[in-house]
Design a protein around this nucleic acid. Sequence first.
DNA 1: CTTGACAACCGACCGGCGGTCGGTCTAGTC
DNA 2: GACTAGACCGACCGCCGGTCGGTTGTCAAG
Lengths: 232, 232
Amino acid sequence: MGRIIKKADERQAEILETARGLFLSRGYDATTVNDLIQAIGISKGAFYHHFASKEDVLSALVWSMAEQGLALHEPLFARDDLSPFQKIQAFFVNGQQFKKEQAPGLRAFIEILYRAENLKLRLRAAEQMTELLVPPLGKVLTEGAAQGEFDIEDPEETARLILNLGGLVHEAFAVALRLSQSDYRAARMLLQKRADSYERAIERLLGVPKHSLSIIDAELIALFLAPATQER
Amino acid sequence: MGRIIKKADERQAEILETARGLFLSRGYDATTVNDLIQAIGISKGAFYHHFASKEDVLSALVWSMAEQGLALHEPLFARDDLSPFQKIQAFFVNGQQFKKEQAPGLRAFIEILYRAENLKLRLRAAEQMTELLVPPLGKVLTEGAAQGEFDIEDPEETARLILNLGGLVHEAFAVALRLSQSDYRAARMLLQKRADSYERAIERLLGVPKHSLSIIDAELIALFLAPATQER
DNA sequence: CTTGACAACCGACCGGCGGTCGGTCTAGTC
DNA sequence: GACTAGACCGACCGCCGGTCGGTTGTCAAG
């Protein structure tokens, strides 16, 4: 076979990118190293020259995904024209806007990520994401508590609680998506309910007024569930 | 080899029990079907006569574990001499008492369950447990809300939030356990902090007064981290 | 222009995995 | 005693993740 030589970092990026596609479409366990190297057109040896194991690829992939997620919010935390509470509001608005813009992609992503065979991938990514986001979020909460904007006991723990609950919303997205194929209205209501509960919960945890946060609005829900709207 | 014939349900229970031990000590992936059948002394054929796949054993195991967990709380929900809020208090006291009584076993269980290789087992068990507990908990919350004991928006969602956050505490147990080997004081403080945050969070989510719930007290923490106390 | 070190790459090979299947054995029934 | 259902056996299969001795391309020193 033709031997094509690339720089190590290019090859690694290529492997990672291909792995992302395969892991997400078939699941981590169901994707074999042979699948991966055939898709790229390299040998087993080449693969194991760049990665120590299949699991190693997963770790690297999860890391890069989490980093991308963090990058979305990082500029926000650096701004000094916002009060802590405004930052928190902006944090959620940020996430919501991104989700709206990427609605079709998000839909596919959620659908795939929440399949049983992707459990490992999903959890590792969520863990990594939490670990990365707790420090900056905690910092904002600390400042806000000092200024009396929040009524919280422990900023870092509160950040952890908030991020953890976020997982419930994502799960709701996945459940609603599945449900929307058979019952669009029920899916919409389920998602609305979960989103509401999440918003009210966060408000209580932060000690801010009811309805002062908008994390997932009706527009996003409609956008997210859109394709099933046709039948009506 | 001598052929020993047992009733199907006995054999299945035997397989399940052995699998529990192996999965928990070595992890699900790392336990092979050969390990399992050798530990029991049956053939491959016998194993696949009773279970469709290795995954099938995991599902059955998770189910039985979740059922055991539910059984612990079930009598409580049926009592009619307690108000909803008292039931919630009792629910947590129940859990705490159980943990105290089983402290050494719990310690080993947590240590094992939170190892990386047991991620799949852990998550499946937690999911199953949530699914089983949300309905009865939700019912209590509904009654309590109707009687004005709780200030909540959606009982079932609140139940889900509470159970989800419980996972954070269990994780804290695992982290603290690891930490306790190098720094007992830090472990104790971490656990205390997380436990406090959890209690305050639940109180806020339920709309009940601060410190009206005691879910994890200092005694449990001390008991749980006990073995590392020797060095001091 | 040669040489040599080293990184990138190749692919046959390995042990062992989950799972299959044709056949055997035994407790219970009539 | 003949028959049957189903518990049990274990050799076997395809394929998996991972290894390793060898080959090829790159590039800098002499």
